[in-house]
Design a protein around this nucleic acid. Structure first.
Length: 573
RNA sequence: CGGGGUGUAGCGCAGCUUGGUAGCGCGCAGCGUUCGGGACGCUGAGGUCCCGGGUUCGAGUCCCGGCACCCCGACCA
């Protein structure tokens, strides 16, 4: 490929919209261009990388028996209606109608569609197990896309789906995918950690996310510093300290707290730590109930956990009318039992607390949960903090930021039941298929590879996904001998199956070297007047600092050998 | 959807306070000189100053209303 004809220009300066390094590099290296919020066009360089990522994913999913197919990018509503996800609010979906008014969606995931085909094609136990997958665009009308390709509204995902006879078969398929993902990330050159995750809008119960640790990430994760416990904050729990037995807590009594509506104000005024207080949140659920949630003053409500405990119902803060109906006052809410019930977080201890009195400018002290609280449900709905105790071993938990580069969900018969995906078993009975689904976002992985593989000059692509393998630079282009030598080398390398980007532009050495560093092709070969003076070319690995002079006559041979070794190392690393 | 910020040439920005011929750097085109780490000279092209309305003799600048984008919070590959 001649660089002079490459579609897409590198940028000296990053557009102001790009705030993170990886986003800036995606734009500066001419990998992608924004088309609208959360919509990106992949330029030829970026598309070459995306195809290589896809090929690695394909290779590994095929290896565990996956069969690639393709479901349309736009689907009729009826399949999503079968599971109720047509009406689900999260995530926001792109919807449209056809000429006759029929509803369609650009689906945000394809469980229903694969399951539909599975129930039609699979009639007998003899046809299971099955793994099918495709690479297809997903539509998610995110309210806020950000970070370049990390979070967009339309993206290609490899999503695979396994269908099995029973739970044991499903476990096997899940484990096979887990191991395939480990191999995929290793080949992509990123360090992904499998963490326990919440299943969110996907349904089902067990799930893992593959997370790459980086400050550019938007997920919060907690890892145990002692054992291998790793979990998304949305799911993470902690070992609660042994509560001290409550003895001699005096009877509760009201205290005057004029204008003190926040824990912070109360702390300052009463000189007590945040943990000495209880805070009560009044929430309205999507089915119209009002619930109260009691947490220690030093803990935050974990929305994902609460939502799961509520059976997936959404919730929002209560309205003024809800406060009035529940006979309490904003800022002075204490434990009460509204229409939807009272939930007390598991970390609330059996000791005396200060809590709201449900009366303006009043709190109560010496409120002892077991003694003074009305009937309640005790659930774990609080956020875990950095430094908390590991639920598994009691060690210290540490918080990290991460990018989710893939996930795997174990659904069991969740979708099969709703969609009547059954098979005829050996004993003549009809049984539901056991299902899992597994996703990897291609664009997000592309940018995450950059996060993990760059320096202050640009990208340092792993050879497994690099847009080209060798970057040949002619210096200067107007020297006939240089040009002839460079073009001879390029032709030689290409004829031996090496992917070469040839910088034939009539630019200065500085421009060419800077662009080579920016684009980050693994091996750079400079053919110059100077190098030809010693009948050689200069070879430099992007990741290395040292140069090597290679005799011109054996250059192609040597470079082919080096590239082949690098390819092999990347495949089996 | 809440809070903050920004919209001026392909990119980065100044000009707006105090209304009066739209600027700078990079990039781009032509010619010449250069040629190993973002070269130099000369010449040149390129703008509905986000959109709409208002005030004014006159609006990039002031006022009102939209829209878009970015960042921070609630949701997910």
């Amino acid at each position: 490929m001649r660089q002079s004809t490459l579609f897409g220009r590198t940028l000296r300066e990053a557009p102001a919209e790009a705030q993170t390094v990886s986003h800036q590099l995606v734009l500066r290296a001419a990998l992608a261009r924004p088309l609208a919020t959360g919509l990106y066009t992949l330029l030829p360089l970026g598309y070459r990388v995306a195809r290589k990522i896809e090929q690695i994913v394909r290779d590994e999913i095929d290896r565990i028996g996956g069969q690639e197919m393709k479901i349309p990018i736009i689907i009729p509503a009826e399949y999503m209606q079968e599971t109720g996800r047509w009406d689900a609010l999260e995530p926001n979906a792109f919807r449209t109608k056809d000429h006759s008014g029929r509803d369609y969606m650009i689906p945000y995931t394809h469980e229903e569609l694969f399951t539909h085909h599975a129930r039609n094609e699979v009639v007998s136990y003899r046809q299971l197990p099955l793994i099918a997958y495709h690479f297809q665009a997903k539509g998610r009308d995110e309210e806020r896309s950000r970070g370049g390709l990390l979070r967009v509204r339309e993206f290609v995902m490899k999503d695979s789906y396994s269908y099995d006879l029973d739970a044991a078969g499903m476990e096997k398929a899940y484990r096979a995918h887990f191991e395939a993902y480990v191999r995929i990330y290793r080949r992509l050159g990123i360090r992904a950690h499998a963490v326990e995750s919440d299943t969110g809008a996907m349904g089902g119960d067990v799930a893992h996310e593959f997370q790459v640790l980086t400050d550019e990430g938007e997920d919060t994760l907690v890892f145990c510093t002692t054992c291998d416990y790793k979990a998304n904050l949305e799911r993470a729990t902690r070992r609660l300290p042994e509560p001290a037995p409550a003895v001699g807590v005096p009877a509760r009594e009201q205290i005057e707290t004029p204008g003190l509506t926040t824990i912070e104000q109360l702390q300052r005024s009463l000189g007590l730590p945040a943990s000495a207080f209880l805070k009560t949140l009044l929430l309205r659920t999507s089915d119209g109930k009002v619930i109260a949630v009691v947490l220690p003053g030093d803990r935050e409500l974990n929305h994902a956990k609460l939502r799961k405990r509520l059976g997936g119902r959404a919730f929002a803060f209560a309205s003024d009318a809800d406060f009035a109906a529940s006979r309490t006052v904003p800022g002075f809410v204490g434990p009460i039992v509204p229409s939807g019930g009272l939930i007390v977080d598991a970390s609330v201890e059996p000791r005396g607390y200060v809590a709201g009195a449900n009366v303006k400018d009043r709190h109560v002290k010496n409120l002892l949960p077991g003694r003074d609280l009305p009937s309640f449900e005790r659930l774990d709905v609080h956020d875990v903090h950095d430094g908390d105790a590991c639920p598994s071993c009691g060690g210290r938990l540490a918080a990290h930021r991460g990018v989710e580069v893939g996930n795997i969900f174990k659904f069991g018969t969740y979708y099969s039941d709703k969609m009547h995906a059954t098979y005829l078993a050996e004993d003549g009975t009809r049984k539901p298929m056991y299902m899992c689904s597994y996703g990897i976002g291609i664009g997000r992985n592309l940018q995450t590879i950059i996060i993990e593989n760059h320096d202050d000059k640009g990208i340092v692509w792993p050879i497994s996904v690099a847009p080209f393998e060798v970057h040949v630079i002619a210096l200067p282009m107007n020297d006939d001998a240089v040009r002839a030598a460079a073009e001879g080398l390029v032709a030689d390398l290409e004829s031996r199956g090496i992917e070469v980007l040839y910088d034939d532009r009539n630019d200065s050495a500085g421009v060419k070297f800077a662009d080579a560093d920016l684009i980050g092709i693994p091996f750079r070969v400079a053919v110059s007047r100077r190098s030809l003076g010693s009948a050689s070319v200069e070879l430099k690995a992007r990741a290395a600092t040292e140069l090597e002079l290679v005799p011109k006559d054996v250059a192609a041979e040597r470079i082919v050998g080096i590239v082949h070794r690098a390819r092999e190392a990347a495949r089996f690393s």
